[in-house]
Amino acid sequence: MNEYKSPKELPPEAQGALFDLLLVLADSKHLLGLRYGEWLSAPALEASIAAVSMAQDEFGHARLLYGLLESFHQELNLPRRTEEPSQYRNLELLDRAFADWTDFVVANTVLDTAMTVQLEAFKESSYLPLRQRVAKMLQEERFHFQHGKGWVLRLVSAPKAKAELEHRLRIVWPTVSAWLGKPSSRSEQALTGFGIQDTDSDGLRTRFVERLGPLFQQANLSVPMIAWDAITGQSVLTTPPDWTGWDESFRRFSRTGPDRETFAQIEALYAHSYPVE
């Protein structure tokens, strides 16, 4: 297997696919950081502290990933690109603020785990700069899942909260599940073919389900998109994503980007004349 030390060494089709994916991940982590950070109003002071701490982790990861992207196009000046929110490639469930703490818990378990599963696929990546940064990010992600899990178990102890959680899980599931990539797309072929990630999108989805299935099982949550296979003792995906309207390079169904309020915060990052390093 080849090892690539810079974008220039990558075959062109892999270069494009990796660039797209890193930008999707960086924007998604940036937005997840913004969302986590909005929870000074978590229902416990400990949770507010955890939220702002996890927000920093996500920003830290976004900073690393944007740093990697800079070597692809020097003039990119990330995270700035354009004054258009539609250029943003974040996971669309992060376009607007979470409605309530249940949404936070869903993001903390499901959305965050999807990103982690994607990162894990780079552990043995042929793209060296990425491989070297993944272990640290994964180390930091462990706490995120533990935190989310703790709150899921707390929520399901109350019938009404459990029903609400199930409802939200069903809403987000198709989008998150699709976010891991469309099978047999050209970019997927490039990413797996050149050893940038160690499995294809369906492989990622399987890992994703295997990660969350046991938690849902333990919490006795009914999410019809996941079934428990009593013979193998594993969770399996019952419903594949509906790809109608899917945009693989943005990993979104529509290119709307974050809402205005969110975009104003992104704009603040560069619409100023302060002497930033």
């Binding site: 900073r63 944007y66 995270p79 990052l269 560069y270 930033v276």
Partner: peptide
């Protein structure tokens, strides 16, 4: 905050 770095320090 005028950059991701500065936002991180603030957080």
């Amino acid at each position: 905050a005028p950059s991701i770095n500065t936002r991180l320090s603030a957080y």
